[in-house]
Design a protein around this nucleic acid. Sequence first.
DNA 1: AAGATTAGCAACCGCCAATCA
DNA 2: GTGATTGGCGGTTGCTAATCT
Length: 268
Amino acid sequence: MGRQPCCDKLGVKKGPWTTEEDKKLINFILNNGHCCWRALPKLAGLRRCGKSCRLRWTNYLRPDLRRGLLSHEEEQLVIDLHAHMGNKWSKIASRLRGRTDNEIKNHWNTRIKKKLVKMGIDPVTHQPLNQDPNSTDNPKNSCSVSDDISMVTKSSSTKNIETNGTRTEDESISTITDQNSSMDNDNHQLSNIYNDEELFSYLWSDESTKAETPWSDSNYDVGGTLYHDNNVSCAGADFPICSPERINGVDWTFQDYCQDFGVHDFGF
DNA sequence: AAGATTAGCAACCGCCAATCA
DNA sequence: GTGATTGGCGGTTGCTAATCT
C-alpha cells in the first residue's frame, strides 16, 4: 500500500500560477491564516495541491520577501554559510532575511557554483580543485571573476580554520551574520518587490484585509539582534510586528514591508 | 533575421521527520 | 508501538528570456 498522495491528482492544476490564483491565495491567507495546507486550496477556491499553495506562498507571495538579485554581501554570506552547513538551504535562508531556500538554492546553482568552479574552488568542499594546467578554467587564466568572490573564499577559509579552533560553528556564523547586517542595496531590492502590474494594482486597491496570519517565520535572526518581533493583538489574533531595522540609514518596520507589498491596512 | 544554445527561475517530485490517533 | 497524515526540505525539471552564431 503506497502513501496517499498529498492531494487528489484529478482536477488539480499544475504549472505557473495565474494572477487570479495569487489573489485568491493571498486573500485567503491574509484573512484566515494557513492552519492546514491540505485543506486550504478547497477553502480558498483553488484547484491546486496544498503543497503547491504552501510553496507559492513561502517562495513568492509572502509579504516579507525581498525580490531581486542577491547583493554582494548576501552572496558572501551564502558562501560562508554553505561552507559551514552544506546544502542546508532552508537553514541558510533563515539567516538571510526575506530570502527563501528556493531562491538561494537557485542562485547557488546558477551563479555562485559556476563562479567558484571558474576560480578553481570546489563548490562542495570549498577547497581548491585539482586543475588540469592546460584547462582554460585554470584560475590563473581567468581574470573575469570578481574580486569580491576572491575575498569571500579567503574569508571562508579563515572561517573554517576558526571553526576548527576555539570558535564554535554558531559563534562563527553569528559573526558572519553580524557582518551582513548592513546591506547596501536593500531599498533598491525592496522597490523591485511585486512588479506584476495587475496583482500590484489589486493589492493597492481598497479591499480590506484583516490579518490573522500567524507569521510564524517572521522572527529573523540576522545579526542575532535585529529582528525580535513583538506580538500585537489584532482582530483577536496576535500579530507580530518586527522591531525597526536600519537599512541605508532608514528605519524599516514590518508595516513598511506591508506597505511595500501594497497592503495598507492590516488592521493596525 | 532566424535558429541554436545558454542562463535563470518557478514549480514539481519524492523523501523524511514530526505529530497524532 | 504502529500506521496515517502533514509539513518541510533538497534535488530536479521544464519553461522562458537572453545571448550567441
